[in-house]
């Protein structure tokens, strides 16, 4: 009994690591993965579902091609982050956590990235854009769009 309990604990301990791996690999947690993890770790699917929906790191839906993250930390907030977020929402037509219909952009917010000197900050595919103004929003979206579309426009 004690041995079983120990094994169970070690298995459950791996759950968040595994979910991170799956999320990294697929960009989301596919339903098949949940049943596979459940069999492997001998944890019920509902328990796994409970854990993965509790944490913000995991999503059940694929993210878009590009990820735009807006820092909503306090320093960014007092420097006008809500206006930047509003503008992204308006331009992309989605709420935070959602992906545009063409699957190009996912808009997300983060509590703080700890680069407060640069606030307000928007992060486009890992690149930091500091001291954002509402008028900079367009450029960030345009720059992330596929290069093909851009050159076609130029021609």
């Amino acid at each position: 009994m004690e041995r079983e309990r120990k094994e169970f604990m070690v298995d459950q301990r791996e759950l968040i690591h595994i979910l991170h791996e799956v999320q990294n690999h697929y960009g989301y947690i596919p339903p098949q993965a949940i049943s596979q993890i459940s069999r492997k770790l001998r944890i019920s699917e509902s328990e796994i579902f409970g854990v993965l929906t509790f944490y913000k790191a995991f999503t059940l839906h694929p993210r878009g091609e590009h990820l735009i993250t807006i820092c909503m930390g306090t320093a960014c907030h007092v420097r006008g982050a809500p206006m930047i977020l509003d503008e992204f929402k308006r331009k992309l037509g989605v709420e935070p956590g959602e992906t545009t219909g063409d699957n190009q952009f996912t808009l997300e917010t983060v509590n703080c990235v700890g680069a407060c000197a640069l606030g307000p900050i928007a992060i486009g595919d890992g690149e930091y854009h500091g001291q954002m103004k509402t008028r900079d929003v367009d450029k960030i979206i345009e720059d992330l769009k596929p290069k093909k579309g851009k050159s076609a426009k130029n021609e």
Partner: peptide, 24 residues
């Protein structure tokens, strides 16, 4: 141990629950 994005996991008992692979 890499957290998974939940502010409450900074609370000590939640943090331990999270390491154990459960909801924080």
């Amino acid at each position: 141990f890499k957290g998974a994005g939940a502010f409450v996991s900074g609370e000590e008992t939640s943090l331990m629950a999270s390491i154990e692979g459960r909801r924080a």
